[in-house]
Design a binder for these strands. Structure first.
Lengths: 152, 152
DNA sequence: ATTTCTGCAAACGATTTGCATGTTA
DNA sequence: TAACATGCAAATCGTTTGCAGAAAT
């Protein structure tokens, strides 16, 4: 993780930006919550515990900066705010998919890319040159299914 | 189309709502632009040509009403506003997908449901009970590819 | 000293809502 | 005359921006 932070610092530095202590603090929060898909407001609330005088605008500006440098990217899970996760969204787009539980709002990542065959079909049938895709699958997760079965 | 409007009217009427002339006007605009995935503001601008004294709030309220009755549903194409299309989004979720051209912003609908096999795999591997999915595929459409090839 | 960074408050844009008036059954 | 519908303006909510002061090179 030390190494990752140093890498980020280098990336920023090579374009006349600094990894200031506030920015590093935000990066840490993101690292500590890799699995959570935090929103800006959520990052802000977590960051305030370590750094109570940080402003919300700084969080927004930092998240935008990290996006520009492809350290994180924004996703929309349909709740009206951007949520962030690590990873480059600009490349050939073969990243993971998301299962969204409609009961507990948990987000499960599916890391295999399961759409290659489908993409080939679309490329052929529509002569559409694919650069990226977003697949969101809504439903009920294993745990919530178990809970609702117990209640019955 | 007459028939469809009458059906909508019935649907609303059966739950103490009326298909008023303003609402019918909005419905017509939507019908005339089935392929366009209009936003609320765009509906408003089109509607004002026929009904200049209509308020934006009425458009929003009507679109929301139509959504409640599953006459239309809202989609997010990543441009920060809701866009609407006909069809029921609440059922078993086996509706179409969207190809989004990053050059001309055209939206191409893919009406086959191409994810059944994938869904089966996810249901098995994750014990996740799927109710719906949204697949957006970004890239360059046939026409834009042709254009950029000509220019070279 | 110049550039970047930051907090604060104000601005923003899409959407929602309160309220008083209009319309319809 | 109830209940629903509407226009208008104000409110809301996530996000962005202007600005003046602080920090870093």
């Amino acid at each position: 993780m030390r190494k990752f932070i140093a890498e980020v610092s280098e990336k920023l530095r090579s374009h006349e930006h600094k990894l200031t202590s506030r920015r590093e603090c935000i990066l840490c929060i993101l690292l500590e919550n890799k699995d959570k898909h935090l929103s800006a407001e959520e990052v802000y609330n977590l960051v305030k515990q370590k750094s109570p005088d940080m402003g919300l605008a700084t969080v927004y500006r930092t998240l935008e900066l990290f996006c520009e440098f492809n350290i994180i990217h924004a996703m929309d899970f349909g709740d009206g705010r951007k949520r962030y996760e690590f990873g480059d969204d600009s490349g050939d787009g073969h990243h993971h998919h998301h299962l969204i539980c409609e009961k507990c709002n948990k987000i499960i990542e599916v890391n295999e890319d399961l759409l290659e065959e489908l993409e080939n079909r679309i490329t052929n049938d529509y002569q559409f040159s694919i650069s990226n895709h977003h697949l969101k699958i809504f439903g009920i997760c294993k745990e919530c299914m178990a809970k609702s079965n117990n209640k019955q």
